[in-house]
Amino acid sequence: MSKIKVSKIKVIKIWRASSLSFQLSSLVVFAVFLCGLVNPLISYDPVLDVDLSRRDLAPSLSFVMGTDGQGRSVGLRLLKGVEAFFFPGLIAGFFAALIGGGLGAICGYLGGWVGRSIAAILELIDTLPRMVFLVLICTIYPPSILLIAMISCLLFIPSIATVVRRKVESLGAEDYILAHVAHGFHPLKIISYHILWLQCRALLTRQLIFVFSYVLFIETALSYLGDYGVQEPYPSWGNMVAQSRISVAAWPWAIPAVAIIVTIAALLAFGDGIARRDEEVKR
């Protein structure tokens, strides 16, 4: 009971001390997460939603964000569209951070030529142009959001590993690690707890958020470039913009476009905010 109280006070304290941009972005991120989490509970049939008698309706009380060229509710599709990137993005981000962080920490821990050669291979993979690679994969395999998420995850592992390795090296790595070995800690504990958790957790959270926003971004881009993203009639923010760009009304594409921009900006700002907060020294 008292623990909950303490953490509540802490949250309020942190909130007051944060900058406005961090506050705003965390509100947006929170809203998106909430949408993502409740999404599986909402049933939506994209085919039944079609009603050509109510095409391109302006926002009103019954359709808060209007309807699109096929008479479907833009608001509902926007909400349901979160599902398209939410779980794939989270999973991609999580595994990219986990695997990338682990690899980076191991490289830094081992050092020597083993560490250096793994690092070199990773850096080589990292030079692949991500976007081109993704388009390529999507033209070869039937496009799906899961595929996009998986490839994004793989593509980000090297860069995350590199960031973590640099961090480990900057720790004055040799002595930091050696001191823990000398004290008698298990190498796995040193890698997972002392390096990744104590020293890299903010950095990894930020990377996770970055990958998450990248999945959203790339789904949009692929939908727009050609039908590589989520397939109609299922909604994603990307294909909502792509499908209705020829529509007469502005809201069917403007609303999801704004949602995409705001969400990505908020995610990035939120990630930065977390990283910055973590850099502050604890006294």
């Binding site: 004055g172 002595d175 930091y176 050696l178 001191a179 823990h180 000398a182 004290h183 002392h194 104590l198 020294v281 604890k282």
Partner: peptide, 11 residues
Amino acid sequence: FQNQQANLHPR
């Protein structure tokens, strides 16, 4: 260790 912060944690 000579580097006294090596086995201490800022967090």
